[in-house]
Simulated assay, not measured.
Amino acid sequence: MPVTTLEKNTETQNSIAMNPEVERQDLVSTAAKHLEPFCFSYRFTDAMLMGADVKTVGKYLDAHQGWFTRCAQPMQVNALGKNGYDLTIGRFSSFGYVVEPKVGLELLPQESGVYHIKTVEIPNYTAPGYDVNFNAQMRLVDTVDGDRLGTKIDWDLDLRVFIHFPKFIYKLPTGVIQGTGDKLLKQIVNRVSKQLTHKVQHDFHGNLGLKIPKG
């Protein structure tokens, strides 16, 4: 996945020297530990139409060991137990700071047509200067297209990312850091969600020989 870089503020760009060759671990180690991490957040909602009844769609989603691994590509995915995954989102940078976030996710069994996804720890892994809080749910809703039953999957995500930046980042105006981080997080979520929706729809309908509903 390519590096995503937001446009730098010209004033701060000239006033702060950055060495792109510095290792990520070294950048994190220079972070001012007494300073509070920045919290970037984004709430996201979307919906996906499936050309089959709720029972059929639910059976597909329950077998996430197959579709999740296939549809998450090109992100790197490793299984964590029965319902968990170690997911590498990609490589991103802003203001010369590079991060390749990983997150552990658990896909909980459905409860009356509702699925919850939450953050879990990745064994033997310490995130270098960041922490992710991922809470999402999917709700299966009956739909009707003529005389054909279908399903709408409503998707809600509440995502928060806490980052301890290197000291030089804290020299920037707080509003610039906050606005840039929130914008980058929004771009990442929108792109990943669009890709995942597209792949899940094609994977589900392709396996069952069904047409993807319009809309």
Rank of each mutant, 00 (worst) to 15 (best):
M1R: 08
P2F: 05
V3F: 10
T4Q: 12
L6N: 01
L6Q: 01
E7Y: 04
N9V: 14
T10E: 08
T12N: 11
S15I: 01
I16Q: 07
M18D: 14
N19R: 03
E21C: 04
V22P: 02
E23T: 11
V28T: 10
V28C: 02
A32P: 15
P37G: 03
P37A: 08
F38D: 14
F38I: 06
C39N: 13
C39K: 15
S41G: 09
F44M: 10
F44C: 12
T45R: 07
D46V: 03
L49K: 11
M50H: 03
G51Y: 01
A52F: 06
V57Y: 06
K59T: 14
L61T: 03
L61V: 13
A63W: 00
A63G: 04
Q65G: 15
G66T: 12
T69P: 00
R70D: 15
Q73S: 07
M75V: 08
Q76V: 14
G81H: 05
G84E: 01
Y85P: 00
I89W: 03
G90Y: 05
F92L: 10
F92A: 09
S93F: 03
S94L: 12
Y97K: 02
V99K: 15
P101R: 02
V103C: 09
G104T: 00
G104A: 04
L105M: 08
L108M: 13
P109H: 10
P109R: 08
Q110F: 00
E111D: 13
E111F: 04
E111C: 10
Y115W: 05
H116D: 09
K118F: 01
E121Y: 04
N124D: 15
N124A: 15
Y125I: 13
T126P: 03
G129S: 10
V132A: 11
N133A: 07
N133R: 08
A136H: 02
A136R: 02
A136V: 05
A136D: 04
Q137M: 05
L140S: 07
V141W: 07
D142V: 05
T143A: 14
T143I: 14
V144C: 10
D145Y: 09
D147T: 09
D147Y: 01
R148N: 13
L149Y: 00
G150M: 06
I153Q: 06
D158F: 14
L159G: 02
F162R: 10
F162N: 13
I163Q: 02
H164N: 15
F165I: 01
P166Q: 01
P166K: 01
Y170W: 07
K171M: 15
P173T: 08
V176R: 00
V176P: 00
I177P: 00
T180F: 03
G181T: 07
D182F: 00
D182E: 13
L184E: 11
I188E: 03
I188S: 02
I188C: 02
V189Y: 12
V192L: 14
V192G: 01
K194E: 06
Q195S: 09
L196F: 14
K199E: 12
V200K: 01
V200A: 08
H202R: 13
D203M: 10
D203V: 12
F204P: 00
G206K: 10
N207S: 09
G209R: 03
L210G: 02
G215H: 07
